[in-house]
């Protein structure tokens, strides 16, 4: 796994702090091995590797807000610690469950976009699982309302696509 190799190679530098700058301009200090889990940050650090002092580097992450980052960072940190040890998958799963259980749907969407942007694939997988779990067996209307999605079909279009397989829209869970 990429995370285990990066954490072992960075064990000496793990105390080093990197500053991440969020979309809303807030600066967050993180350990270097955590920052390296984020693809844009990793690329940025490699591009600026001639810079002797890591402390001076500020990595801009213009697509992630401070609120989302401050949720992501502890997660990635703990997840790194877990995957560095030869732990059972069960423990990681329990940790992921605990992390996702109380997420609101807005937060879920934001984290998903952030995880995608930052290339944290293990988190993205978990979030996709949770999303699929929350919307399966739900009606189309429920999903729209739940996730705040505008229905951009015309009534004719919608009637047509429903007529193709009307049985698929029946028997969903009560909202």
């Amino acid at each position: 796994m990429a995370s285990s190799s990066s954490s072992s190679s960075c064990s000496s530098s793990s105390e080093k702090k990197i500053t991440l700058k969020s979309s809303d301009g807030e600066a967050l200090n993180v350990e270097k091995n955590v920052a390296l889990e984020f693809e844009p940050a990793k690329g940025f650090l490699e591009d600026n590797s001639e810079e002797a002092d890591d402390e001076a580097i500020v990595v801009p992450l213009p697509n992630v807000s401070a609120a989302v980052l401050s949720e992501l960072i502890p997660y990635v940190k703990q997840r790194l610690e877990l995957s560095a040890k030869p732990v059972q998958k069960k423990l990681i799963k329990a940790f992921d469950d605990q992390f996702t259980r109380h997420l609101s749907d807005d937060k879920l969407g934001e984290l998903m976009l952030a995880a995608n942007y930052l290339g944290v694939n293990y988190l993205l997988d978990v979030l996709c699982d949770v999303t699929a779990d929350r919307i399966k067996n739900k009606s189309v209307e429920y999903v729209r309302e739940f996730l705040g999605i505008q229905n951009d079909f015309t009534p004719e279009e919608e009637a047509e696509l429903r007529a193709q397989c009307p049985w698929a829209f029946e028997g969903v869970d009560q909202d």
Binding site: C128, I135, Q150, D152
Partner: peptide, 23 residues
């Protein structure tokens, strides 16, 4: 690619409904 990942986790009927949510 996220849409793809979520759809992969839904059943066949769930995918039909998923694709009816928005354009």
């Amino acid at each position: 690619d996220i849409i793809f990942s979520i759809m992969n986790r839904l059943g066949y009927v769930g995918q039909l409904r998923f694709r009816a949510v928005c354009k």
